[in-house]
């Protein structure tokens, strides 16, 4: 139990630290890759919490997603290398206050709620993956299919929005 908490805490701190780096560096590629490693640390945290399938999936998906983010940053930013030390933030005070307030409220809720007895053991990883598959194919099938159709719609919509208009 304690070991699990230690591992989860360690990877969690790594995730938070990389999350802070995202907004503290002025190099855009660094910032995107810091987000990548933050999400990888979140995936490792899932592994520490015995959600093996979700952890591996998170580690796999986020790498591609955030690397694509890096290439878009290089494309669209005026100073992707961060050599000019440009400041690209506004309303800093209000944002800081909102961030701290949001985190404090969430921590307060987490600490003050009585969560009841915690489950001690989760099913084994192979059993978990099987049961998740059955859940996806039976009870939650509609949700999952809706997600699939939504992805397709978003793909088409995003391509249509981004494609260059042909001049006639």
């Amino acid at each position: 139990m304690l070991l699990q908490a230690l591992f989860a805490g360690f990877f969690g701190m790594a995730a938070v630290w990389f999350g802070v780096v995202v907004f503290r560096t002025s190099s855009m590629v660094r910032s995107a890759l810091a987000l990548l490693f933050s999400m990888t640390a979140v995936g490792a945290m899932f592994l520490a919490m015995e959600a093996e399938f979700l952890g591996v999936l998170q580690i796999m998906m986020m790498a591609t997603e955030m690397a694509i983010m890096a290439i878009f940053m290089v494309m669209y930013m005026m100073d992707p290398g961060g050599l000019g030390q440009m400041d690209m933030s506004h309303q800093k005070r209000a944002a800081q206050a909102a961030g701290v307030l949001g985190a404090l409220v969430a921590i307060g809720v987490a600490l003050l709620t009585s969560w009841g007895p915690a489950a001690n053991a989760a099913p084994g990883a192979a059993e978990q993956t099987r049961l998740l598959g059955i859940e996806l194919m039976e009870r939650s099938m509609l949700i999952f299919e809706t997600a699939g159709v939504t992805i397709l719609t978003a793909m088409i919509a995003a391509t249509a929005a981004a494609i260059e208009r042909r001049r006639r």
């Binding site: 989860a8 969690g12 999350g19 209000a94 961030g99 969430a106 921590i107």
Partner: peptide, 23 residues
Amino acid sequence: ITLLVALIIGALLFGIGLYGALS
């Protein structure tokens, strides 16, 4: 204790994200 650790980490990530999205 792991539940609390995870919830606090989640809250911190949320706070950082909120700051970033606003600033």
